[in-house]
Design a protein around this nucleic acid. Structure first.
Lengths: 345, 345
DNA sequence: CTGTTAGCGCGTTCAA
DNA sequence: TTGAACGCGCTAACAG
C-alpha cells in the first residue's frame, strides 16, 4: 500500500490557498506574508512534504546534481578525491552522481551522455587510461555544462584542471635516490599518453639531467604500474642492467619489485634503493617501509569541488590549472629512516 | 554561448511529425512505423539529442536513479561494495546517487530525505555508527520506495538485508586461536549496538563456550576498532590480564596491538597470537602478516544490487536476509603460515 | 500506425 | 501580498 506523495497542491488545498503561494513560501525569498509562510512551513512539515526536485529542476532549468566520472571508485586515491569533493559539495546543496569507467573509453563516453541526460549542473572527470579521443566532450561544452578535470587531464578540453604536481614529485623522488648514492636509476612508468605518467617521466629525466647522469631509455619500463609488472621488471631490467635505484610511478609496481628482490635475496636499500608514488596505506607497512610521494587526494577533491561551484553560474569556462602540492615521504626502502622532507612548490 | 538543448519537439518539427511519434520511436517498444522509427533515430542522432530524464521521470513516475547511503566512501570495504553495486546496476540501466553520512545520524536522516526528494527508484543503506533511531525510514516505506540494507542493518526496518556472516567469521577466528593454543583470549569489540560488532562478540563467546573456556567480560574491550585504541588496549588489558590471544573486530585495532606489542618487545605469535577482521590490504604486508576474516565486499555489492533490482516493481517488500560467506585467512600473527582455511556456511 | 489532448509538480510571469 | 495561467519536456490515454 503506497501512500501518495504530497505535493504543493495538496498543501494548498489543505490550507485554502493556491499552489503559487505555497511555492513562494517554500522558496523563502519571494514576497509572501510572513504569517502565511509560517503556516505553510508548518503544514508542509506535518504532511511530510518532500519537494520534487525533478519537477523543480525541469521548471527552473537548474539542477543541484553534479556528475562525477572516475576510472574506479574502489581505489584509494579516487575514493579519497570523491570524499573531498563531497565534503564541500554537500554543504553547498549539491549531490553527486558517480559513474565508473573501469578504464574504458567507451564507458567514459556513455557516462558523459548519461550525465548530460540527467541534466547535471556540472561534470567532474578523471579520464580512463584508454581514453585518447575527447570529441564526446564537445556536447558538454556546447550545452554550457561546466567541466572540471582532475588528475588525468587533457588540455584539449577547456575548463579547470586540478592536478598533482607530478613533475615535482618525480623530480624530488629521483633527486633523493641520487643523493642517497644511486648511479643507475630505472623508472617504472605508466602509459605515457596519460599526462600523470608523462610528467613523472619528465621529472625523472630532469633530475638525471641536473645531476649530470645520462638518460638511458632502456632503463624506463613502460606500463609498469601493477604489482606483477614490478616483479617482472626486476628479472628483465633491474638485475641484468645492474640498476641500483628504482623510481616507480606507482606504489604497486614498487611493491612488486620489493617482493621479487627479497625473494632473490637482494638487499633493500643495500643493493637497490626504491621509491614509489601515491603513498598508499601499505607503504608504511611493507618491509622495508616504502619511500613514496604523497598526494593529497582529499585536498584535491576540495579544490575540484571549489572549481565546479565557481564554474556554475559563470558564462564562459576558465581554463585555469591548479597544482596540488605533493610531499616526498622518505622511508627505509630508499635508505632513509622515518624522515620527512617537505617539497616546496 | 550556450546552444539550446534539442528536445523531441525540435526533432518532430524537423521531421514534420508530432512529438508523440518521436517519443514512441525513441521508446522503442511502442507501435510506430519501422521506417519512421529509423528516421527519428537518425535525425535524433545527428541533432545530438539527449533525452531529458528529469522530464521523463516526472511524467512516467519512474526513475532510473538509485540512492546509496554509506558512512564513508573512502573506506576499503565500502568502496568495494559500491563498486560491486555499480557493476550490476549500470548494465541494468540504473545510476547511483551516493551520499556519505560520516557516521552521523543527522546526516543519515538528511541523506534519506535528499534521496526521497530526488525520487530515487530505490535506496541502499548501511547505517552510521551513531544511528539508533530509524523513524526517518517510515517515509521511505510509506512512499513505497524499496529499501535494501547492507552490512550495518537493523530488523526494525522491513526489506532485504545483505550481511556478512559475522558470527561465523568470529567463531572460526576464535576457534582458530584456541586451536593454536590460546587460553586467555581478549576481544577488541566495536560499538555493541551495531549488529556487526554484536554478532562478532556473539561468535567469540560461542567459540569460548564450545571450548569450555569461561567468558571473562573484562577481556572485552568495547569501541576498540581504531589503531590507537588497539595500542591503548595492549597496555590497559592485554598485558595486565596476561592475555595470550586477541580476536579483534577490526584489522586496524589488531594492527595497533601488533605495533604496541612489538614496541614492548613481545613476540607475535610467540607471546600473543592475534587475528583481525576485514582482511584489509595491509594485513598481508604488516610484520608479522595478520590473520584476518575476509569479507567479500564486491560480492556483497552484487547481492545488494540484485536485491534492489528485484524489489523495484514488487508491491510489497520482502524481509529476506542474505548472508555473504566469509573466509578465515590464516597468517603468521596467529601462528600459521600462509595457510588457507575456507569456512563453510 | 499516427495525431490530439492532457497533465506529471513546480516556478514564474502578469494581474488584481 | 496573493491568485490565475502557462509551460519546462515528456509520456500516456484516447481517437482517428
Amino acid at each position: 500500500m503506497v501512500k501518495k506523495r504530497v505535493t504543493i497542491t495538496d498543501i494548498a488545498h489543505e490550507m485554502g490557498v493556491t499552489p503559487s503561494t505555497v511555492s513562494r513560501a517554500l522558496a523563502g525569498n519571494t514576497r509572501v506574508g510572513s504569517n502565511t509562510r509560517q503556516r505553510v512551513l508548518k503544514v508542509a512539515a506535518q504532511m511530510g512534504y518532500q519537494p520534487n526536485v525533478l519537477a523543480s529542476s525541469l521548471r527552473s532549468g537548474r539542477s543541484d546534481t553534479i556528475g562525477m566520472v572516475v576510472p574506479r571508485i574502489n581505489r584509494h586515491f579516487f575514493s579519497h578525491v570523491i570524499s573531498g569533493v563531497e565534503a564541500l559539495l554537500n554543504p553547498a546543496g549539491f549531490n553527486l552522481l558517480i559513474i565508473q569507467t573501469h578504464e574504458r573509453e567507451e564507458h567514459e563516453r556513455k557516462a558523459v551522455h548519461t550525465l548530460l541526460r540527467n541534466r547535471v549542473a556540472g561534470i567532474i572527470i578523471s579520464h580512463s587510461v584508454e581514453t585518447k579521443g575527447f570529441s564526446h566532450y564537445q556536447m558538454v561544452i556546447d550545452e554550457g555544462v561546466p567541466l572540471v578535470q582532475f588528475d588525468r587531464v587533457t588540455e584539449q578540453i577547456v575548463g579547470a584542471r586540478i592536478v598533482n604536481d607530478n613533475f615535482l614529485g618525480a623530480l624530488r623522488s629521483t633527486q633523493h635516490l641520487i643523493k642517497n648514492g644511486c648511479k643507475r636509476i630505472a623508472h617504472f612508468a605508466g602509459a605515457l599518453h596519460v599526462n600523470v605518467y608523462q610528467e613523472r617521466l619528465d621529472g625523472y629525466r630532469y633530475a638525471l639531467e641536473k645531476a649530470g647522469i645520462e638518460y638511458d631509455p632502456s632503463l624506463v619500463v613502460e606500463n609498469c604500474i601493477i604489482q606483477e609488472a614490478g616483479q617482472e621488471a626486476v628479472a628483465r631490467i633491474v638485475l641484468p642492467k645492474k640498476v641500483d635505484g628504482i623510481f616507480a610511478a606507482s606504489d604497486l609496481s614498487a611493491l612488486g619489485a620489493i617482493q621479487k628482490l627479497k625473494e632473490l635475496n637482494k638487499a633493500i636499500p643495500g643493493d637497490v634503493k626504491i621509491s614509489g608514488f601515491a603513498n598508499e596505506p601499505f607503504a608504511e607497512m611493507v618491509e622495508p617501509t616504502l619511500t613514496s610521494v604523497e598526494q593529497n587526494a582529499f585536498e584535491m577533491g576540495n579544490q575540484v569541488a571549489k572549481a565546479v561551484i565557481e564554474s556554475i553560474g559563470k558564462d564562459e569556462p576558465v581554463s585555469e590549472e591548479i597544482h596540488i602540492p605533493v610531499r616526498l615521504i622518505q622511508r627505509r626502502s630508499s635508505g632513509s629512516d622515518a624522515l620527512l622532507m617537505n617539497s616546496v612548490v
